[in-house]
Design a protein around this nucleic acid. Structure first.
Lengths: 146, 146
DNA sequence: GTACAAATTAAAGTCGACTTGAGGTCAAGC
DNA sequence: GCTTGACCTCAAGTCGACTTTAATTTGTAC
């Protein structure tokens, strides 16, 4: 497939595909003159990458996770990442419950509501700071605002 | 409390506190000369902000969510954000299961494993692109690498 | 054989969330 | 009365993940 086809199939702009190739996340299977040529597999790989990004992993992490070093995958790393996600899921659940409660609660300030405060503390447990995330901004191609 | 006390109590650097104030996320209750003076409440508010960041909301979103416009809170917005989190939670769960499976599965390439591919597709449903997230990098103060 | 849409490169720009740096103010201790 | 350390402001810098731009270079259709 040429880059335009991959772009259409994956929903990613060609510039991103080139960028990913440069980072080593995907590979073109050759060139037709200057033009890259990709195997169909790249589309699934891109899906996996998008998934990882969506789950909050950086491109570098994704690279580590899904590269076969030799023939042996980094199983320990995958398990660690799974555990990370699990923790994150618990935090998000607490946050969601907090929001739902805040929307329903009648206390003028949430800080006066013991239930809310309790959720705050639960969610605050083993918290991990991170740059920025989730936010859906540049959902230009294919995906519409949630 | 002065800024150093808030910094210690919240685990955030003073520079961040100034930045948050500038963005309108927190307020100092006055000045002692040049020096800001904060009420103790700000610490809980900061906890809430950290929580929101951790859940993937941008500072602007957090501002919208937890500002009392008039006396009436944005309940609809809170519900919408809760729903967003709920979706995210489902995606992360699928991803986690995918990782766990990948770590256990014997197929040389995951792309040959139907179970993995199925998880891929499930998680890929109503996906939402986002800038970058989760990653714990600048966890300098208080919080250690996960 | 020529035009042109599409691909290529390298470099620079963007965005959010902070951090860092330079230069200045001020209360307290010596 | 002067140094010091904590705080201040404003501007510029950083980081990850891309995007944009400008200047080419084609493959392909006519």
């Amino acid at each position: 497939m040429d880059i335009a086809e991959v772009a259409k199939a994956s929903g990613l702009p060609a510039s991103t595909l080139r960028f990913y190739e440069e980072k080593g996340l995907i590979q073109s299977i050759g060139r037709n003159g200057l033009r890259r040529f990709f195997s169909g597999d790249v589309v699934e790989r891109l899906a996996l990458i998008s998934l990882g990004r969506n789950a909050g992993f950086s491109l570098d992490e994704i690279g580590e996770m899904f590269t076969v070093d030799g023939a042996e995958i980094n199983r320990a790393l995958l398990l660690a990442k799974a555990a990370e996600l699990d923790k994150k899921i618990k935090e998000l659940s607490a946050m969601r419950d907090g929001l739902l409660h805040a929307a329903a609660c009648r206390a003028a300030s949430h800080f006066e509501c013991p239930k809310f405060l309790r959720l705050l503390r639960i969610a605050g447990k083993n918290q991990v700071r991170q740059p920025n995330k989730l936010k859906d901004k540049k959902l230009k191609r294919g995906v519409k605002k949630a």
